[in-house]
């Protein structure tokens, strides 16, 4: 049995699905945010795997850009969560219904 791309891609799919389950089930906005980070990392693992086995150096550059965008996204997202917390005294997403109707 040799270590091929399928192993890494399967792990990546599993991590992505765990992230999806976290986003769909939890109500704490911070944990939903962490699940999104988990999904981004699962996709990064796929990129590096394809870059390694094709082989193509572009895969790693894409991961680099995803990391830069993720850093910006985390900063803005956490700022939104802090602002919501100041208004609602809670980070429960079910209580944030400002934009519904």
């Amino acid at each position: 049995m040799t270590l091929g791309p399928g192993w890494y891609l399967t792990l990546s799919a599993l991590l992505f699905c765990i992230g999806i389950a976290g986003v769909l089930t939890r109500r704490n906005a911070l944990i939903i945010f962490m699940s999104i980070e988990l999904m981004l990392n699962a996709v990064n693992l796929s990129f590096v795997t394809f870059g390694r086995y094709l082989p193509d150096a572009n895969g790693q550059v894409f991961v680099f850009f995803i990391m830069a965008v993720a850093a910006a996204e985390v900063a803005v997202g956490l700022a939104i969560i802090v602002t919501i917390f100041r208004h609602k005294e809670s980070v429960d997403i079910d209580k944030v219904n400002l934009m519904k109707w």
Partner: peptide
Amino acid sequence: GFAAAGLLLLVAV
């Protein structure tokens, strides 16, 4: 939530 994630995993596999 877990059913949706499981279905996606099925498609991926």
